[in-house]
Design a protein around this nucleic acid. Structure first.
Lengths: 106, 106
DNA sequence: CACTCGTGCAATCGTTATGTTGCATATAAC
DNA sequence: GTTATATGCAACATAACGATTGCACGAGTG
């Protein structure tokens, strides 16, 4: 199993256009660069590069069907990213807990 | 309560230096730009700007104590970002579930 | 085969990000 | 008051990002 770096996922999700693409595809839509470009204010090539970056983060999979490449979603990297966030949140909770204990012990 | 945009949080966490700073601070360490710069291969000013970007995402809080500004962590924005990720993951789970149901109904 | 449609790659351009250095300012210590 | 320390701001160089245009390639269609 390929583990996608959370950093890569965060970078992919830091752009509004890519967030929009993820929203569409996570809702079950598939599409080609050309199709998505019709719904966005940017060119097909720009959309294509955004889809490539999402693919680099493991969030999309492009499948060639005839002359078109249809992109669909893959949620797997989201769980790695979620774990990364939760690990830091829990670490911080532990720090706050230790601090509270230290204060009450005085 | 100020809700920090998940996009801003993702952008903040997409840089290795800022991830390192978050790791340190989420573990309970506090520090000044000067202190952190001693442990990083970049200048104090560069660290200061990273801390500012983290502060912009709501992940750090800088407190002036005498002549120094000491930065500490705030985990609150992490939960918004986690929710964003989980919402998409659940959406996708629903899509997969509907697809499975559709296939079994045929 | 000629034509169309979709994609992919390269060059280009403007903007933003990341880093540096230099200098100014404010606070604490002598 | 002078000195040392820490920060803040501005100017600058370089790299990366987001987008564009132009052109070439591949896959279907007449």
């Amino acid at each position: 199993m390929i583990t996608t770096s959370p950093r890569r996922v965060f970078a992919a999700l830091s752009d509004p256009t890519r967030q929009q693409l993820v929203d569409w595809m996570a809702a079950g839509e598939t599409g080609t660069a050309t199709e998505f470009a019709e719904r966005l204010p940017i060119s097909r090539q720009a959309v294509s590069r955004h889809l490539s970056e999402l693919a680099g983060a493991g969030l999309t999979i492009g499948t060639r069907r005839g002359k078109e490449v249809r992109y669909s979603f893959d949620a797997a990297p989201l769980s790695d990213a979620t774990k990364w966030l939760e690990a830091r949140a829990e670490l911080w909770e532990g720090v706050l807990g230790a601090l509270a204990q230290h204060l009450s012990a005085d």
